[in-house]
Lab assay of single mutants.
Amino acid sequence: IDVRFTVNGLDVTVRVRTEEIAERVKELAKNGVDWREIQRIAEELNK
């Protein structure tokens, strides 16, 4: 599942395995978490 969001004007796409992880990623993006941090968290959750 590809999750797309915009952080500080940057369009970011993170690929995740499940809808649940996708929701977590969207939540982080909404809360203004840095995209590199979101990427790292997504990689952890995908394991």
Results as ranks from 00 to 15, higher is better:
E19A: 11
R17N: 14
V16N: 00
K26H: 10
K26F: 05
W35E: 06
R36G: 15
D2P: 03
V7M: 06
N46T: 04
R17L: 15
L45T: 02
L45V: 03
A22W: 03
G9P: 00
T13W: 02
E37V: 09
V12H: 10
I41H: 06
I1D: 01
E23N: 11
V14A: 02
V12F: 13
E20C: 11
V16E: 00
V14Y: 01
D2E: 14
E20N: 09
Q39C: 10
A29C: 07
D34K: 06
D2C: 10
T6P: 13
A22F: 05
L28C: 05
N31M: 13
N8K: 05
I41Q: 08
E37I: 08
T13F: 04
N31Q: 15
D11Y: 04
L45S: 05
K30Q: 13
R17S: 13
W35H: 09
G32L: 11
A22M: 07
I21T: 03
N46C: 03
V25M: 08
D34V: 02
K30I: 11
L10Q: 14
N31Y: 05
E44N: 10
E20I: 09
L45E: 06
A22N: 01
N46E: 05
R40V: 11
V3R: 01
L45Q: 05
V3P: 02
G9H: 04
G32K: 08
R40T: 10
G9D: 11
N8F: 01
V14N: 00
E44P: 01
V16Y: 00
K47E: 12
W35L: 15
I1K: 04
E37R: 02
V3F: 03
V33P: 02
V33F: 11
L28P: 00
G32D: 08
D2K: 07
T6A: 12
I38H: 00
I41E: 07
R24M: 14
D34S: 11
I38D: 00
D11W: 08
Q39G: 08
R15E: 07
V25Y: 00
V16I: 03
R40K: 14
Q39R: 10
K47A: 15
N46A: 05
E23G: 10
I21D: 10
K30A: 14
E44L: 11
V3T: 02
T13K: 08
T6I: 13
R17K: 15
E23M: 11
L45G: 04
R15M: 08
K47H: 14
L45W: 10
R4I: 15
